Computed example of a mutant assay.
Amino acid sequence: MTVPLSILDLAPLVAGGTAGDALRRTLDLARHAEQFGYHRYWVAEHHLTPGVASSQPALLLGQIAAVTDHIRLGSGAVQTGFLTPLGVVEQWGLLDALYPGRFDLGLGRSAQRRKSALAAAAPEATSSQAGGAGAKPVGWAAPDETETEARVVDGLLIPKSFSFAPILRSARSALFFKLLHQPDASPLDLDSAIADIETLLAGPYTDGEGNEARAVPGEGADLQIWVLGSSGGESARVAGARGLPFAANYHVSPARVLEAVEAYRSAFRPSATLAEPKVMVSADVVVAEDDETARHLATPYGLWVRSVRTGEGAVPYPSIEQAEAYEWTDEERLLVADRVETQFVGSPDTVAERLETLRRVTGADELLVTTMTPGHADRVRSFELLAKQWYGR
């Protein structure tokens, strides 16, 4: 039986475009996704990023819900370190009150990742790691990087690993986190944040001394909680121990996807939510009528990944002309190689075959695909071609 196919959208800006343009394209794509038969439509949470407009998932999903009828909507993922559990429950409770039973609350731990990176930082880490145009890529050959070699597992490429730790320790990152946090605030660990969210949803929240608090809207909301993770670390273990569904990021951290799903399944304990593990795995794809056209449309992808990997933050998605004119260094090509080599690019047959390999090797119960192209029509067409091929329509 074919597993469901879902979409992850970053509401990307393109070169020369505006945030408004990007958000209107997201609304249009969501309408098309529902028509094409996709199971879920998730939006990412990215802050202070020049090329991504999906900074507030709950706000954006309310707009998407208003222009769609039945497709499930969700976050990939709400960063639990940037909001209190009450703030999360109130936002998503409001969405469920208006559009009942349609929302997936995907949770991540971005803020806690920076805290861990700082704790493990070498004393000599300095602001020179901030990155920027013309700077040496700060993520390359990081001293705390897991030195795994590329390998192929039953047809699936598992590339050499990459570490974001130097970026998380950079002066640029420190500025971003200053803006994202209240002064002296300390983010809860992921397990504690989820525990508080689940308690508030079940309601009431009590302090053991006879006092109680209720989230309205929020208490009783019909939300499906997911945990997203990029490794076999805290996110995978917490998701498994709490019996929650887990989404693993092959498109962000392809080197660690098998580690992530294995850690989740090893930690899994049945819950009222799930009797057995449930895994969704993401992939970056570009589909066109033939392989050559798809490769042409995917030309800017490496340059866009470079902007992320050097600590600049994702830039507006480059045009094909900009990408073809860029002069790469050997070091830069190595910096983005794992992402470029694991992007699934080609005809519907080609991409569907690679997605099936990803599903088989990871044992995924669902796949989550994301697509970047300079032109909106090409992006919509990519999702349409893939859905037709995947579901045999």
Rank of each mutant, 00 (worst) to 15 (best):
D21L: 06
G16Y: 00
L29W: 00
L29Y: 05
G16S: 02
R31C: 12
G16F: 07
Q35Y: 02
H32I: 09
V43W: 08
G17C: 06
R24K: 12
A44H: 02
F36V: 02
Y38Q: 09
E45R: 02
H32Y: 13
G37C: 05
R25D: 11
L23S: 04
Y38N: 06
G20C: 03
D28I: 04
T18S: 15
L23C: 10
A19C: 04
A22Q: 02
A30L: 07
T18D: 06
T26Y: 04
D28T: 13
Q35V: 11
G20V: 04
R25I: 01
A15T: 14
P12I: 10
L23I: 09
W42G: 00
W42I: 00
A44P: 01
L13R: 15
H46V: 08
R31M: 11
L29Q: 03
R24P: 00
R31A: 13
A15H: 13
H32V: 00
V43D: 01
E45Q: 14
Y38M: 09
A33M: 06
A15C: 12
G16R: 02
A30G: 12
P12Q: 12
F36I: 05
T18F: 04
W42L: 11
A19Q: 09
G37Q: 07
V14Q: 03
G20Q: 12
A33T: 05
G37K: 05
W42D: 04
D28K: 12
T26F: 05
Y38F: 15
R31E: 15
L13C: 13
R40M: 06
G20T: 10
R25F: 00
R25M: 03
T26E: 08
L23V: 12
G37H: 02
G37I: 02
Y41T: 08
Q35L: 05
A33S: 10
R40Y: 06
P12M: 14
W42P: 05
Y41K: 10
G17L: 09
A19H: 10
H39G: 09
L27I: 04
E34I: 06
H46F: 06
E45P: 03
D28G: 14
T26M: 15
R25V: 01
F36M: 10
A44I: 04
A19W: 00
E45G: 07
P12E: 13
F36Q: 01
F36T: 00
V43A: 09
R31S: 12
E34T: 12
L27P: 12
T18Q: 07
L23D: 01
V43N: 01
A30V: 05
R25Q: 14
F36D: 06
A30S: 15
A22S: 11
T26R: 09
A15G: 09
A33K: 00
A44M: 04
Y38T: 05
A15K: 10
R25H: 11
G37S: 07
L13S: 10
T18L: 07
E34K: 07
L23R: 03
E34Q: 14
H32N: 14
G37P: 05
V14P: 00
P12F: 11
D21H: 13
V14H: 02
Q35C: 03
A15R: 03
V14W: 04
D28N: 14
F36L: 13
W42Y: 08
W42Q: 07
R31Q: 15
V14M: 05
